[in-house]
Computed example of a mutant assay.
Amino acid sequence: MAVCNGSGVSTQTFQGVIPAVYHNYHRSCVILLFSSQDGILGYDVKSVVMTTTLTLQEKDVQVTSIPVQQFGKLQEIGVCPRKPPLLVVLSADNATRTFLKEMSTTGKLHRPSWFLLLPDVTPLEEFFADIYVPFNCKFLVARSFRDHVTLTEVYRVDQDSSLIISPFGHWSAATGLTWCRCSLYNRRKQLNGHNIRAAVVHEPPFTDVREKDDGILYVGGYFGLVWGLLETRINFTTTWRKPSDGSWGMFENDSWSVVGKDSLNKTQRHGSWNGMIGMIQRQEVEVAINEFSMTSLRLNVVDFTIPLLATK
């Protein structure tokens, strides 16, 4: 969760809204992030971090703090191992925007939950102009208006699409936190005609792949029918592609090497994926539609949906 500075925000607001969002997100801990180059709402950085930390600890919340410039070191330590953390960013300067931009380019922005308290005078489109908040990222923006805070959710369908801004809830000292209780799917079930690149191989009755006269692939069968229903339901289109080797995906040229010295030796696995799994790993497609066996090796490089059918 990320919190950035906004005009007229009191320390009481910080101490009230942050624990409320934390408990509703069910995160394992809170990490307070701030820029070492900027103050917070005109207050002393150390003072705000200290008072916010004490408030969270009194509520039995595991909390730590670190400048955004040193966040990489915190990742190496492995804070919050049980669940992704709630990141609270207490600054909104150029260093903070650079940090968020770098996080988005590495593809790691979606892992934690974010809560951003932005200055009222800063347009959302301007602040997120070059920051890619992915479709599956929980990123809240909060703005303070006197004695209450409005909450807005932001994301993009893909990296090149416009920023989607959706009202989410509000908080005040008098009423507490009120926000949308709907699931992430119900909040993100409109893809606005986005085109998805999908890999497929011919395997009736699960996938029936046929090529039209213009070279465009048509996919029927059980999975093709399910995918077509999803296209209609959440408004997207599909460009189908077949792997050149016609395979599902196997790990090739498998080998091991030793990394380290003496008692600290570690083994490292080398190789490459072929088939549809390889197409996903190389980002040639976003998804593969077929009957797949879920293995620990494949789970290292792709995500699986919940099973749609069971076979023996």
Rank of each mutant, 00 (worst) to 15 (best):
G169Q: 10
R269A: 04
C137M: 01
L100W: 02
L54R: 08
C80Y: 06
I280W: 00
S255T: 15
K73E: 12
E125Y: 01
T267R: 08
Q70C: 05
C180R: 12
L116T: 04
S296F: 13
I196K: 07
Y132C: 04
A142Q: 07
W171F: 14
Y132K: 01
T55D: 01
S10F: 02
N300L: 15
V209F: 05
S257L: 07
D158A: 12
G249H: 08
V133Y: 05
I165F: 05
S161M: 14
L118N: 04
V9H: 03
N265S: 03
S247P: 00
A129T: 12
Q283D: 03
D303Q: 15
A142G: 15
G107C: 03
R269Q: 11
Y25M: 07
D147A: 15
V209S: 03
T305D: 13
R82L: 10
L41F: 02
S144D: 07
K83I: 10
L308E: 10
L56T: 03
L32K: 08
F145W: 11
G275F: 11
S172V: 06
I77W: 09
V45Q: 10
I306E: 15
T105P: 00
T51S: 04
A129D: 09
T178D: 13
K46M: 08
K101E: 02
G39Y: 11
N186K: 12
H110G: 01
W256P: 08
E231V: 04
L299I: 06
K189S: 15
H202C: 00
W114I: 02
V287G: 01
F128V: 07
P19Q: 05
P243C: 07
